[in-house]
Amino acid sequence: MDFGYTLLCEQTPPKQLVTDLVAAEELGFDYSVISDHYFPWLEEQGHSAYAWSVLGALAQATDRIPLMTFVTCPIMRYHPAVVAQKAATMGVLSDGRFTLGLGAGENLNEHVVGRGWPSVDIRHEMFAEAVEIIKKLFGGGYVHYRGRHYTVDSAKLYDLPENPVPIAMAAFGSRAAELAAEHADALVSDQPVPEVVRLFGERSGQGKPVYGQIPVSYGTDEEEAVQNAYRLWKHGTTGWKVMAELPGPVNFEASAKTARPEDVAEAVVCGADLDRYAQMVQQWADAGFTHISFLQIGPDRQRKFRDWARSDLLPALRERFT
């Protein structure tokens, strides 16, 4: 299993995102992922850097560490032809270190273009067309496309990396897993979903990477670490079906009003007990995941988490899982 470092644009200022990853690379994390949001989940998180500008800076500031969007939605806020152009440019800038992680998105980020928020079945149709367009453009040459949801008029990418940018697709159910098996080089999920992973493998995804993410709140004072997670991550208790539909930070704040610190602590690994971190990673390993990134909650806690990860967490996990 490879262990990654999550850059959360919703909680961290843009320049710090760059310096955080430079440090994470030096400390030996295996790869990195970055969120692609227009809004933070909660007002208190307070940031929403444009991930693709940050990625360009990361490609130049780092040398080794793989980069990946976790995940970009190509169905509304961005046209898929533009996503293909951005991803291809990142492939060139990073010397082949970039993976395009794609997902069907959330209302939170996509409503800003004023087109409403389609039902989930329509979103899946749009997602399938978008991925088809992106893959065609990655192949080089002119692309003409007319589907139910998108039209591409004589598009061509002039700057392509030596090898096509790998595509990872988010899936939380069987339909999305089948789509990922058809089109993707890797699977993404922020929940340990063994049935989805199994289906992905059976439908031609066998042996391909499977990426997951674990939110953590490191600290030597466990109660204080729980309170930090509660303050900045209580929206995470609402579940994905709710999270995909709500339109703004104020709505997430309202939906999480009944959440208690102990509820958040069930979803977030808090404190510094290595056994608890290992037990959580074991759940994902048992579900078939090959890559796990750690999302440290709180921009002011990144350095302490990285230092602890280098000295304690990563050695312990690598001894057990690699």
Results as ranks from 00 to 15, higher is better:
residue 281 V to K: 07
residue 105 G to N: 10
residue 138 F to T: 03
residue 98 F to D: 00
residue 31 Y to P: 00
residue 282 Q to G: 06
residue 21 L to W: 04
residue 161 P to A: 14
residue 77 R to L: 05
residue 42 L to N: 12
residue 14 P to Q: 11
residue 304 K to A: 06
residue 247 P to L: 08
residue 282 Q to L: 11
residue 140 G to C: 05
residue 57 A to I: 01
residue 16 Q to W: 10
residue 23 A to L: 15
residue 316 A to E: 14
residue 84 A to N: 07
residue 197 V to Q: 02
residue 12 T to S: 01
residue 311 S to V: 13
residue 29 F to W: 00
residue 232 L to V: 04
residue 30 D to F: 07
residue 95 D to I: 08
residue 180 A to Q: 02
residue 261 P to Y: 11
residue 262 E to K: 13
residue 142 Y to R: 15
residue 242 V to S: 07
residue 254 A to K: 15
residue 288 G to V: 11
residue 255 S to H: 04
residue 137 L to K: 10
residue 137 L to F: 09
residue 277 Y to I: 13
residue 249 P to W: 02
residue 174 S to M: 06
residue 50 Y to K: 05
residue 271 G to T: 08
residue 294 F to P: 05
residue 37 H to G: 00
residue 110 E to D: 04
residue 224 E to V: 14
residue 108 L to Y: 00
residue 26 E to N: 12
residue 257 K to L: 10
residue 13 P to D: 07
residue 60 Q to Y: 13
residue 109 N to W: 12
residue 15 K to N: 08
residue 77 R to C: 03
residue 78 Y to C: 03
residue 252 F to Q: 04
residue 136 K to L: 15
residue 140 G to D: 09
residue 176 A to I: 06
residue 225 A to P: 05
residue 97 R to D: 03
residue 259 A to P: 06
residue 124 H to G: 10
residue 146 R to I: 11
residue 174 S to W: 02
residue 139 G to Y: 11
residue 144 H to A: 12
residue 23 A to N: 09
residue 208 K to M: 13
residue 275 D to Q: 11
residue 106 E to D: 15
residue 61 A to H: 12
residue 105 G to E: 04
residue 140 G to W: 08
residue 45 Q to R: 00
residue 291 H to E: 14
residue 279 Q to G: 08
residue 109 N to A: 02
residue 295 L to C: 07
residue 319 E to Q: 15
residue 48 S to H: 07
residue 212 G to K: 06
residue 14 P to K: 07
residue 78 Y to Q: 08
residue 303 R to V: 14
residue 214 I to R: 01
